[in-house]
Amino acid sequence: MHGLVNRAIERFVRDTYGRDVWLETIRRLDLGYTEFEAMMTYEPQVTKEVLAALATRLGKDLPDLFEDIGTYMISHPDIEAPRRLLRFGGVDFVDFLHSLDDLAERARLAVFDLDLPTLELRDHGEGSYSLTVGLCEHHDLRLGRVVMGVLRAMADDYGALVFLEYRGASAGREVILIRLLETAFASGRSFELGAGGLTG
């Protein structure tokens, strides 16, 4: 598993529940370290253990935990990069939805060994879409619920009003139903092209 994924989980716990909760959970797993390096690779098993331990510690179902992580990655003010990079996908939420087809490729351009699930959007007309979330290449963790969280936060970011529904998982994929109720429901957050990049 790419360190960026583990690091995202770690940051989510630290920023949402505090340092103590994180240290307590990670120490219990006895991994020999308490911090993940974003640019290193870890065994997928480690990620699974961390997630299971967190679900227990926080008293949450894994699906809820996954969705919270997805939402956190986009909406927490301390981590700007994922939100900004996704906003490059489109000028409005519909545009953004269509850009999801290229997301795995785009991510590979930035970090070549970041293994994201393939996403496939189908437009059913009248603001109704379905997003198929495939499996990743190197691990069998189902990330559909994380994608749900990301979509929810991105809709907020664009100021769009959407209804999301998780339609279940089958052998190689998960399906999310997206119903776009209003594209300009709220003003959303601003996005300036030149605000990131060189300033890091």
Binding site: E37, M39, A81, A110, L193, G196, G197
Partner: peptide, 21 residues
């Protein structure tokens, strides 16, 4: 241009993470 700006930003973020490591 937009793709280029995306790449610059994505690579800068990745580079920053690598630099910290």
């Amino acid at each position: 241009t937009i793709e280029m700006l995306y790449l610059i930003e994505a690579k800068s973020a990745a580079m920053e993470a690598s630099r910290k490591l």
